[in-house]
C-alpha cells in the first residue's frame, strides 16, 4: 500500500512538473481563467444575482478544470505513446492504472489553481467580492468534486486510449460538457431531451453541490441527495475505467500496439 501511495505521489509530482512545460496546458491553467473570468463577470454583472461573483469564480474554475482534463488527463496515454515512453511505463512492476491515477491526481491538483487565479483576478482587477455561506459544506463538496473529476478523467483516459480518434475527441468534448453540465447556467434552460445526458455526467452534480454550499443549505436533504448521486456516479466511473483498462491490457498484448503511433 505504501509503495502504491509513493508511486502515486511521485507520478503526480512528475506530472505536475511536466504538464506546466506544455504551452497549451499553461494556457489552460494561467490565461484561460483570467479571460473566462472577465467574460463571465461582465455578462453576469447586471444579472440580478447578489452573489454573481461566486458564480463567476466557481464557473470559471470548473470550466478550466475541465479544459485541463480535456487537454491533459484524457490525452496523457496518447502523449506517452508519441514520446515513445508508453511501453516503458506499461512494463514497470507498478500497475499501469496506478501510474495513470498519479498523473490524473497531478493534473487535477494543478487544475485547482484557476479557482484561485479567477478569484484573485475578479477581486483585484474587477473589484468583485463573493461569499460562501456554508464553508464546511463547500469543503466537503470540493473534496468529492476533485474525486469525481479524477473518476471521469480515468474514464476518458481509457476511452481515448481505445479510440483511434482521441485527438479529435479531445478537442471536441470541451464545449459539450460546458453546456450539458450547466457549469455557467442551469441545465433547466436546455431542451428536456438533453437532461438525462446531463445527469450521467458527474460535473453536473459537482456544480449543483458547490453552488448549493455557496448559496447556503436550507436543509441537509438536498445536499445529501446530490452528494449521494455524485459519489455513486464517481464509483461507477472508477469501475467502468477499471473494466476498460483491462480491455486495453488485453488488446495491447494481442495487437502489440503500445508503440504504434
Amino acid at each position: 500500500m505504501i509503495t502504491v501511495l509513493e508511486t502515486i505521489y511521485s507520478t503526480a509530482k512528475l506530472q505536475m512538473k511536466e504538464a506546466v512545460t506544455r504551452p497549451t496546458f499553461r494556457f489552460c491553467l494561467l490565461i484561460q481563467p483570467i479571460i473566462y473570468s472577465l467574460i463571465t463577470y461582465k455578462m453576469f454583472i447586471n444579472s440580478g444575482h447578489d452573489n454573481f461573483v461566486a458564480y463567476t469564480v466557481l464557473g470559471t474554475g470548473i470550466l478550466t478544470l475541465w479544459s485541463c482534463i480535456c487537454f491533459s488527463s484524457a490525452g496523457d496515454i496518447e502523449r506517452e505513446r508519441y514520446m515513445g515512453t508508453l511501453q516503458v511505463i506499461y512494463n514497470t512492476p507498478t500497475n499501469f492504472k496506478v501510474i495513470i491515477l498519479g498523473k490524473i491526481l497531478g493534473n487535477t491538483m494543478l487544475g485547482l489553481l484557476p479557482f484561485f487565479i479567477s478569484f484573485a483576478f475578479v477581486r483585484l482587477f474587477l473589484g468583485g467580492d463573493m461569499y460562501i455561506k456554508d464553508p464546511m459544506a463547500f469543503g466537503i463538496s470540493m473534496i468529492i468534486t476533485i474525486a469525481s473529476f479524477m473518476g471521469i478523467s480515468m474514464l476518458f483516459a481509457a476511452v481515448f486510449t481505445l479510440s483511434r480518434s482521441s485527438r479529435i475527441l479531445m478537442n471536441c468534448i470541451e464545449y459539450p460538457v460546458f453546456i450539458l453540465c450547466g457549469i455557467l447556467f442551469p441545465i433547466e434552460i436546455l431542451p428536456k431531451w438533453t437532461i438525462p445526458l446531463s445527469y450521467i455526467l458527474s460535473p453536473t452534480w459537482a456544480v449543483k453541490l458547490l453552488r448549493l454550499s455557496v448559496e447556503g443549505l436550507e436543509g441537509n436533504d438536498i445536499f445529501c441527495k446530490y452528494f449521494g448521486i455524485l459519489t455513486t456516479i464517481t464509483i461507477i466511473y472508477f469501475i467502468l475505467s477499471n473494466i476498460l483498462f483491462k480491455i486495453i491490457d488485453n488488446k495491447t498484448r494481442i495487437k502489440a500496439t503500445l508503440g504504434v503511433v
Partner: peptide
C-alpha cells in the same frame, strides 16, 4: 457547440 455555449450563457445572464 462553442456558439451554443456562449448564446445560452447570454440567454441566462442577460435574461
Amino acid at each position: 457547440f462553442q456558439l451554443l455555449f456562449f448564446c445560452l450563457l447570454a440567454k441566462y445572464s442577460f435574461k
